[in-house]
Design a protein around this nucleic acid. Structure first.
Length: 831
RNA sequence: GCGGGGAUGCCGGAGCGGUCUAACGGGUCAGGCUUAGGACCUGAUGGCUUAGUGCCUUCCUAGGUUCGAAUCCUAGUCCCCGCACCA
């Protein structure tokens, strides 16, 4: 065909939404994305972090996220893999409960509405999920297994209970999640300060796996920054534990600077330390309680911004090396659950200790001098390495070396030891809320803490509940009052529910066996599908979810459920889609782009194409109404072309282009360079468009190449070309490298170059001589005669073009421009 | 404070030692097509220069390494993200 001449107003002809609906329906009816285990086929598990179904529905940002995974899933499926690409809903959580409190809507109803909406929207995006694998965490069929795992962990000692601080609103009489605390006030009572209270809570012993979680990071094919974040989060540090004697009792402290031990002038114990009161003398009790009261009015957030503050406990500690007595303070800047919750303070060589000492006029004792010079007056702590002074037999030794020596000395005298410490804390899973998995524990007056027997699972959430004050489960008598499974006596149920991160820590193991009511999942199926080959999600889950899921996998391995160590081999972090104003999309900013609107205007495929061609999909991008026009043009041109294409034989040039494109696009998709793939699709299409014909088979390959990006349109064109079945499950084209011909490419570059040169000449003679050149004569060296498509050239220039060999005696060449001809560079004469 | 990532032409965004005035898209301008507009097509889009050439100036700023730097190093400025009193 010739160039697509204007006048085709395809907008009237393309009904995107009709095409989309048609294919979405057929995909669903024919179940082409449903999979089962097949040992003859290699599996590929593409997983996106499942969403919390919010009532506001999906916006274009979600479309961007899921399109990234869908393209990969479609591509792998066409490449011959048995692709598991499932979706589910992280359906428990606070917003549903908040809606219940504020609007009186039951969380279940709220959530089900939201999920219905999500599912409809996801289907409209053309995502190729296997919906038969759907999981929903708020149904007992799912959360039963949360309870099952909790009990398994309980048996293994991976679960324990201890007191911990929570946010408490005295007006609501309930515990608040961090998100419900705004500026230290309750979200519902702007005039009410949130208090910090100590409650008994359930913990998971994630720290048991701290070392393995850290060590295995190197095995992961994850973005570097996520790995670094996890490393920092786990925060392994080597140090020395030293015993100080206080009131004839041993108190351990952790330090990475044992070299400064001779400079200790006081101790600080965390204000949140569970045994703090044991250190407080009678005389100081009032002071300490006053201090604690002051702290209590402060939310956790504010706590971090406070000035160093403290109070003397009345007790003294004995330095194990110097035997000096130093005062013990309670302080707000010592973290209770890191190390031992108490530190030795060396004001001369630690900035925090220095500030504290200045404030309370405590002695500052220098024990390290710089290697050159001496310290006289300190304006701040000297924390550089140096040489020891005032340190008895360690004087004169370099501080870096003495760390080992002092530790060895302490170890020898049984006063200390080398230890490793982690920042990673045990995972607090207790939530004093309704909309979560009930913790399967019963408290019996006689038998104490009794786990619910597994045969009694699930412990179901009562449906009829009253929201008002506190956790509605507490007030629900049928739920709370039970018989003890051991002694049959009166007992009470645990009313705490689980953190929803518990649900999402193992959901990837449930998809492929989502209807199993005997076990959380079949180990054989897990063996086939796991680990996840490609996990896709936002970087905001770098620490919490991704650590918990890794922990779960390791714990389940040790419980015999799994045979591998890591759940997610590869992780891809998609960027965030911002509004047209460059701001984060949000209702309040009014910059939310809805898929429905975009779809009506441009078609979903156009939107998908646009989103992934803006930039590399791991980058943050911004929506642009102008930008999408470019994608729309391409889509329209492709549709229009396929309606007019003349099918016949493909020429060498297109064969070359096609095969090269297949090779490169395949690699680009594998490596998530979707933006590059689109550029190559454009380039290939432009070449195809210019030729008079193409073979049906080759055009079919082109359709396959676009189908992961524009699945509906690809299906439509596929069908129009009388191909069988669905292009979505057709074989991905293979590049025939023998058809790739670099020479052709060079020739093409030459054509481009010559066009540039001709235009240059035309411009110059117009400017200089005022002439409008109309005839172009080219003189090429004989071997290159076939390299130039004169017809194409003429069409492109919209001028008459004639070509001669330089040695052609009959050529027309009034100014002897043929003498200028060089290889790859014909002489030009214009008149 | 600690840790990570950035700054590219009118805009978005590639590039990450030579092939770079810098992919691709958007915008703008010129020409074509068209009754006109839209759509579509062709080309231009740092400056000067030239029958297709050549030169100069550009990739946050200032230095440096190199035969050669948008790309590597050093210092600085600004922006984003994560952790945050972790002893």
């Amino acid at each position: 065909m010739k160039k697509i001449d204007g006048a085709i107003n395809i907008e009237e002809k393309i009904n995107f939404s009709q095409i989309e609906k048609k294919w979405q329906k057929r995909w669903e009816e024919k179940k082409i994305f449903e999979v089962k285990e097949n040992n003859k086929k290699k599996k590929y598990y593409v997983l996106e972090m499942f969403p919390y179904p919010s009532s506001s529905g999906l916006h274009m940002g979600h479309a961007f996220n899921y399109t990234i995974g869908d393209i990969q899933a479609r591509f792998r499926r066409m490449s011959g893999f048995n692709v598991l690409y499932p979706m589910g809903y992280d359906a428990f959580g606070l917003p549903a409960e908040n809606a219940a409190i504020k609007a009186g809507e039951h969380p279940l109803k709220y959530t089900e509405n939201a999920m219905k909406n999500y599912m409809r929207q996801m289907k409209e995006l053309g995502l190729s999920y296997d919906w038969s694998k759907l999981i929903i965490t708020c149904y007992p069929e799912y959360y039963k297994w949360n309870q099952y795992f909790f009990l398994k962990f309980f048996e293994k000692g991976l679960v324990y209970k201890k007191k911990s601080a929570v946010n408490w609103c005295p007006k609501c009489q309930t515990v608040l999640a961090n998100e419900q605390v705004h500026d230290g006030k309750c979200w519902r009572h702007e005039d009410t300060n949130v208090e910090i209270r100590q409650l008994e809570q359930w913990f998971i012993r994630t720290t048991k796996y701290a070392d393995e979680l850290l060590k295995d990071i190197e095995k992961l094919d994850w973005p570097g920054r996520i790995k670094i974040m996890q490393e920092n989060w786990i925060g392994k540090s080597h140090g020395t534990e030293i015993d100080f004697e206080i009131n004839k009792e041993k108190w351990k402290i952790f330090t990475t600077r044992p070299d400064t031990i001779y400079g200790v002038t006081f101790m600080v114990v965390s204000a949140q330390h569970p045994r703090l009161m044991a250190l407080v003398t009678k005389e100081k009790k009032k002071d300490v309680e006053e201090f604690l009261r002051r702290l209590r009015g402060v939310s956790e957030k504010e706590l971090e911004e406070l000035e160093k503050d403290g109070v003397f406990t009345g007790s003294y500690a004995i330095n194990p090396l110097t035997k000096e007595k130093v005062p013990v303070y309670a302080g707000n800047f010592v973290v209770a659950d890191y190390g031992s919750g108490m530190v030795m303070a060396v004001p001369a060589h630690d900035q925090r200790d220095f500030e504290f000492a200045k404030k309370y006029k405590i002695q500052i004792k220098i024990v390290i001098h710089p290697e050159k010079g001496r310290l006289d007056k300190l304006n701040g702590a000297f924390i550089e390495p140096g040489v020891l002074v005032n340190s008895e037999k360690f004087n004169g030794i370099k501080s870096q070396d003495v760390i080992r020596e002092i530790t060895e000395y302490l170890t020898g005298s049984k006063l200390g030891r080398k230890v490793v410490n982690y920042k990673l804390r045990d995972w607090l899973i207790s939530r004093q809320r309704y909309w979560g998995t009930p913790i399967p524990i019963i408290y019996c007056d006689k038998c104490g803490v009794v786990p619910v027997p597994k045969k009694d699972l699930p412990v179901k959430l009562p449906e009829k509940i009253k929201f008002g004050k506190g956790n509605p489960l507490v007030a629900n008598k049928e739920f709370v009052n039970v018989k003890c499974p051991k002694c049959n006596g009166k007992a009470k149920r645990e009313t705490d529910t689980m953190d929803t991160f518990f649900d999402s820590s193992w959901y990837y193991l449930r998809y492929f066996d989502n209807k199993n009511d005997k076990m959380p999942f079949d180990g054989k199926k897990a063996e086939y599908w796991m680990p996840v080959d490609q996990y896709i999600g936002g970087a905001e889950h770098a620490t919490m979810h991704l650590i918990y899921a890794r922990f779960f996998t390791k714990a389940l391995r040790d419980l015999g459920f799994l045979k591998f160590d890591e759940p997610f081999n590869k992780l891809f972090n998609q960027g965030m889609l911002h509004g047209a104003d460059g701001e984060k999309m949000s209702k309040s900013k009014g910059n939310v782009i809805l898929p429905e609107e975009v779809s009506n205007k441009y078609g979903m495929d156009t939107a998908r194409l646009f989103l992934i061609s803006i930039a590399s999909p791991d980058k943050d991008i911004a929506w642009s109404d102008h930008g999408i026009e470019g994608s729309l043009r391409l889509v329209k041109k492709i549709i229009s072309y396929s309606g007019k294409a003349k099918f016949g034989k493909t020429n060498k040039k297109i064969e070359h282009k096609l095969n090269k494109a297949i090779k490169e696009i395949t690699e680009d998709i594998q490596n998530y360079r979707y933006n590059f793939a689109v550029i190559k699709i454009r380039d290939l299409f432009e070449a195809i468009e210019q030729e008079s014909e193409i073979s049906k088979n080759d055009f079919a390959s082109f359709i396959k190449l676009i189908s992961p990006f524009c699945p509906h349109i690809a299906e439509e064109l596929w069908e129009k070309l009388a191909n069988k079945g669905f292009v979505s499950v057709a074989d991905w084209p293979k590049a025939d490298e023998s058809k790739v011909d670099v020479k052709l490419e060079e020739a093409e570059k030459n054509v481009e170059k010559i066009i540039g040169d001709i235009n240059n000449v035309l411009r110059i003679i117009k400017e200089k001589q005022g002439k409008e050149g109309s005839k172009i004569y080219l003189y090429v060296i004989p071997v290159e005669y076939g390299n130039y498509n004169v017809e194409l050239l003429s069409k492109k220039m919209n001028k008459e073009v004639k070509m001669f060999k330089v040695n052609d005696s009959k050529k027309y060449d009034p100014e002897n421009k043929s003498g200028k001809a060089k290889p790859g560079k014909p002489g030009i004469y214009v008149e």
